[in-house]
Design a protein around this nucleic acid. Structure first.
Length: 683
DNA sequence: AGCTTAAGAATATGG
DNA sequence: TCCATATTCTTA
């Protein structure tokens, strides 16, 4: 409350820059139209959200839990050269570097009842200002711009359509910093400033009052926004110098808007089914716990790998009956992981019970109960992180929709539900996600994307041939049939998955022990396989050697769209560190390039939908190589054709040698859930 | 004694 | 001594 007055400024004061932001609600009619005119001519906007607790996007470590109170905007009227560090913004108060720059405050919080009319007017004007900012194509610079855009969409959801944010140009220095080095995370604005702006400079007085005292931070907003602007300018130069500018502008910046829009979309979850499955899984867990205790001859905590280790190896001594069991990474204890338990399952009944217990427990705690904690009013909406990976991929949390189990868990025990007796119950968490009424989910995925990219980058003729033959519909199925010597029709899903794991393991440098563990074969057989693979696909091996060599020379590797990953250990003395960096280098080029393609697809599809007057399809999730949309039933044909065309045309866009294939899948049943997708026939 | 925190292990996803 | 994520749980 104390601060409210500080925002005010007397009419006419708008021009002279003050210490505090000018609250636009204090402006008269004339000043308001003046302000709108100024905004129309602005060269840049630097913005931050202000939260109820007084913090802003510039001094909160993580996304603030408190709700948004308003937005402060620094309106730049001329794009001046970035000031050298230490020159500006050393004072504790803000003095405009340029006299024409303005610092304004837009209140967005909900109006109190008694001053509703006035508040409505203010809200409307705030909206007018923000709308103009979004429409005029002048860059809006914001730390965590996605959160800013999402919040605007949420607050002005009635006045603005999601397509309208598509025209805006937002810049986020955090993403710029991440492109320059994806390995070092920038957790906060202060951190960004320290890394890219105040580098060796000024460790003095002013740092004290930026984060520690929240009340003081108000008077520093102008200073900090100025800093934000300067850091963005520095980073702009950095991006251009490193050849990352195009990637930044054409891929990562448009993605900000796409993710903001995605986060405003809610996915309906079947609450009743969720509760029911939680109970079924809970019952099964109790049974398995009982069985495990009997098999072990003592009570212990099944979820504790430590206690399980004691039972299996100290008490039962099962490790003495089996050689070369995998050990834990840090403590070098005998592992209780799936591969080890698989090896032990003929020696004792306990390992099998544990394996099933863990499967069911994962299902219950993460995908069923975990999902419930993410729900708000029967809906979920993931939070997307654009800077959370080193390879350029996206990540998602709350829930991690990218990691939700694909394969069902079957419970082979009698259960009595609603008086009905069933012997086998299958639980697949994806079916808990349901599309809106009148809509269906459409999934479009790049098939074998990384292998196709590898084929292209290595120009391996054998691999290219496989992709250019139209009769081959699925590479891994083909490879599995070749490897096992069985006809394609008899290849099962598990066989295909195995073939896939073999190929990627070998390509990315798996050792014989690891591969043997993975496949349940002996290390000798595994090394024979690696050998024959290298023999058949010689150019793949050449590609990895070439990539490592380049990395040694330059200190970094580059994806097809110029994404970089510096690898400090590529020339390390330590064998372990060096070879790890080598594998990371090879993996990055392929995985990073696949990420580029998938992001490009998102950007192009979004742009097409935005310019279409009729299409309303919404992106629900990106699962790395797969885009999941919610589409109005009447638009499925039109939209799916569009998606397929755009995604497959990326071959030309990116000048790939190898063709891209994008099978489309839609829900078969009108029941409309995720999972149980079936391939959409060509038209 | 009960509390929070961080690391480690295991397992799900994707290639 | 394949890569890179998130989540959950236990343990210190």
């Amino acid at each position: 409350m104390l601060h409210e007055r500080r925002y005010s400024c007397t009419p006419g004061q708008i021009k002279s820059s003050g210490k505090y932001p000018c609250d636009i609600s204090s402006l008269g009619c004339e000043e308001k139209s003046k302000l709108l005119a100024t905004i129309e001519q602005a060269a840049a906007f630097i913005t931050t959200m202000i939260f109820q607790d007084g913090s802003s996007q510039l001094n909160s470590e993580q996304a603030s839990t408190s709700s948004v109170k308003g937005v402060v905007v620094l309106v730049k009227n001329q794009t001046d050269q970035p000031c050298p560090p230490g020159h500006t913004s050393t004072g504790s108060t803000w003095n405009a570097a340029n006299e024409n720059d303005k610092l304004i405050y837009l209140k967005t919080e909900q109006s109190s009842l008694w001053e509703r009319e006035q508040e409505q007017a203010h809200k409307k004007f705030s909206w007018q200002v923000l709308f103009q900012m979004l429409q005029c194509k002048v860059p809006i610079i914001c730390f965590n711009a996605k959160d800013f855009l999402r919040t605007l969409l949420q607050i002005y959801g009635n006045e603005i359509g999601w397509k309208q944010v598509a025209n805006s140009v937002v810049l986020d220095p955090r993403i710029a910093a991440w492109l320059i080095n994806p390995s070092d995370t920038v957790p906060s604005f202060e951190c960004l400033i320290q890394k890219y702006f105040e580098k060796p400079f000024s460790k003095g007085a002013e740092n004290i009052d930026t984060g520690t005292l929240r009340n003081v931070s108000y008077q520093n907003l102008g200073v900090n926004l100025e800093k934000l602007y300067n850091v963005m300018m520095d980073l702009t130069h950095g991006l251009k110098a490193q050849g990352l500018w195009n990637l930044f502008c054409t891929l990562e910046l448009p993605l900000i808007k796409i993710l903001a829009v995605m986060e405003t979309h809610k996915i309906y979850v079947n609450k009743q089914e969720l509760k029911k499955t939680s109970e079924i899984l809970g019952l099964r867990l109790k049974e398995l716990e009982q069985q495990a205790h009997e098999a072990a001859g003592e009570r212990f905590l099944l979820t504790s790998s430590c206690q399980l280790r004691e039972v299996l190896f100290d008490k039962l001594k099962l490790h003495t009956l089996c050689e070369k069991l995998h050990r834990t990474e840090i403590q070098q204890l005998v592992s209780t992981s799936e591969v080890v338990l698989n090896k032990l399952q003929d020696l004792h009944p306990l390992p099998k019970i544990i394996l099933e217990y863990r499967q069911v427990h994962k299902m219950k705690s993460t995908y069923v109960d975990g999902l419930r904690t993410c729900m708000k009013n029967g809906f979920i909406s993931s939070t997307w992180n654009q800077t959370g990976t080193v390879t350029g991929r996206l990540s998602a949390k709350h829930p991690n929709i990218q990691g939700i189990s694909k394969h069902p868990v079957t419970i082979a025990k009698k259960q009595y539900i609603k008086g009905k007796e069933e012997d086998i119950i299958t639980i697949s968490p994806r079916t808990l996600f349901v599309s809106k009424k009148g809509c269906t989910f459409l999934a479009a995925d790049f098939s074998h994307i990384e292998l196709r990219i590898l084929a292209d980058l290595s120009s391996e003729p054998e691999l290219l041939k496989l992709f250019q033959e139209p009769e081959i519909t699925d590479i891994f199925t083909t490879l599995a049939s070749q490897w096992k010597g069985i006809p394609i029709e008899q290849v099962k899903h598990a066989d295909r998955e195995q073939a896939k794991r073999i190929v990627y393991s070998v390509v990315y440098g798996a050792g014989k022990e690891r591969l043997a563990d993975c496949l349940g074969i002996t290390p000798v057989q595994a090394s024979q396989f690696i050998e024959s693979f290298m023999q058949k696909y010689k150019k793949v091996h050449e590609f990895t050697k070439k990539t490592i060599k380049q990395c040694r020379n330059k200190g970094y590797v580059v994806s097809i769209m110029g994404r970089k990953r510096p690898l400090a250990n590529i020339n390390a003395q330590d064998y372990k560190l060096r070879t790890q960096a080598e594998r990371q280098a090879v993996n990055f080029v392929v995985q990073g390039s696949a990420a580029d393609l998938c992001k490009m697809a998102m950007v192009k599809i979004f742009a097409s939908v935005v310019i279409s007057p009729t299409l309303t399809a919404r992106l629900i999730a990106q699962i790395h190589d797969e885009l999941l949309f919610e589409v109005e039933d009447s638009q499925i044909q039109e939209f799916s054709a569009l998606v397929k065309r755009i995604m497959e045309s990326l071959q030309q866009t990116t000048a790939l040698e190898v063709p891209l294939k994008v099978p489309l899948k839609v829900i078969l049943t009108t029941g409309k859930s995720w999972g149980c997708m079936t391939e959409l026939q060509e038209m």
